[in-house]
Design a protein around this nucleic acid. Structure first.
Ligand code: ZN
Length: 274
DNA sequence: AGGAGCACCTGAGTGC
DNA sequence: TGCACTCAGGTGCTCC
C-alpha cells in the first residue's frame, strides 16, 4: 500500500485528531510484525504521554512525545493507521490500539504484518538518528538532478532500482518509480551510468510533480489503501503504466510492456520511454 | 557493488 | 467446493 504519498496523506489526516492529545491507554496484540511490537516501551513512553508532532521521513512516520520520546511507524505493505470511535467494532488484524480522550482511538491494522513499530526513549532519540543512512527527501530543496548524478557516479544498476533505493531517495516504491520514469521518458532498465545531467534534472522534476500530485489526490488506492478517516485516494485513476501491462498507452496508444527488474513488476511504454 | 533468491505474512484471483 | 499456484504498495538477509 503505502509509499511516500500515502504515508504523507495519513500523516496529514492524523494531525488534527492526535497532535496535542494525550494517550490514555495502549493495547497490543501478541503477534509480531516485522519485529515484535515493543509492548513494554509503548506502556512506558506512549501511555500517558502527549503527542506534540507527527513527522515523516521517507515511508516512516515519527510520533514525537512531550517527554522527548518518539514512536516510529512503518506501514509495510498493508499497514493502516485510522481514527475510530472506541465503540466501533475491532477489525481483523488490528494490532495496536491507542485510546485518546473523548472516546476516540488510533488503531494500527496490518494484514500481512510487514510493518514496524519502534519506540525510542528520549535519550535514544536525542543521541541516535535512526534515519542517518537514509537518502534525501524528494520534496526538499536538496533533491536535484545534480544530487542524483552525484549519487549515481560509479554505479551501473538500472535507473528504476536506483530510484527505489531508500539510501538514495527516501520514500519511492514500486508504483511511483514506474510512474516517475514514464513521465521522465526513461526506460526503467536504463543503466544509470549513461544518463546525462539533463535527464537527471528531468527525473528530479517529474519525481516532485508525481509525488505532489499523488498527495493532492489522497494517494493511490490500488486494492485497499485508505486514509486515516477510511477514505480512498484516487491517484490510481491517473496511473500511466503501473498495473497496465497489455493495455494501450494513455499518451500514444502503444502497448504497455512488463518486465521484472530487481524482483519487482516493472511497467513501461516502449514508445514514450527511451 | 549489487543482483538473484528467499524470507517474513495474508488474501485475492485464476485455472483445473 | 477444493486445491495449487501466482501475485501484491516493503525490507532485509545470505550467497555469489
Ligand atoms: Zn506511450
Amino acid at each position: 500500500m503505502p509509499e511516500l504519498p500515502e504515508v504523507e496523506v495519513i500523516r496529514q489526516g492524523l494531525i488534527p485528531h492526535v497532535v496535542g492529545r494525550q494517550i490514555v491507554a495502549v493495547a497490543c496484540s501478541s503477534k509480531k510484525l516485522r519485529l515484535a511490537i515493543p509492548q513494554k516501551d509503548l506502556g512506558r513512553w506512549l501511555k500517558g504521554g502527549r503527542i506534540t508532532a507527527i513527522q515523516r521521513r521517507g515511508k516512516y512516520l515519527i510520533f514525537l512525545l512531550e517527554s522527548g520520546a518518539a514512536m516510529i511507524v512503518h506501514l509495510g505493505m498493508t499497514g493502516r493507521l485510522g481514527i475510530f470511535p472506541a465503540t466501533a467494532p475491532p477489525a481483523l488484524h488490528d494490532h495496536v490500539v491507542f485510546s485518546l480522550p473523548e472516546g476516540m482511538q488510533l488503531r494500527y491494522n496490518d494484514i500481512r504484518r510487514f510493518g514496524l513499530i519502534r519506540v525510542l526513549s528520549p535519550d535514544q532519540y536525542r543521541e541516535h538518528d535512526p534515519f542517518r543512512d537514509m537518502g534525501c527527501e524528494p520534496l526538499e530543496q536538496e533533491f536535484t538532478g545534480v544530487y542524483l548524478k552525484k549519487m549515481a557516479a560509479g554505479r551501473l544498476q538500472p535507473v528504476k532500482n536506483f530510484l527505489m533505493d531508500n539510501q538514495v531517495v527516501a520514500g519511492i516504491g514500486n508504483i511511483y518509480a514506474n510512474e516517475i520514469l514514464f513521465h521522465a521518458g526513461i526506460l526503467p532498465a536504463t543503466p544509470i551510468g549513461s544518463l546525462t545531467l539533463a535527464r537527471w534534472e528531468k527525473v528530479a522534476e517529474k519525481t516532485r510533480e508525481v509525488l505532489l500530485r499523488a498527495i493532492a489526490c489522497g494517494g493511490s488506492s490500488i486494492s485497499d489503501f485508505v486514509n486515516s478517516s477510511g477514505q480512498k485516494g484516487y491517484f490510481q485513476l491517473e496511473l500511466m503504466v503501473y498495473g497496465r501491462a497489455g493495455e494501450a498507452c494513455r499518451q500514444c496508444a502503444a502497448t504497455i510492456g512488463r518486465q521484472v527488474i530487481g524482483g519487482r513488476s516493472t511497467f513501461f511504454c516502449p514508445n514514450c520511454q527511451k
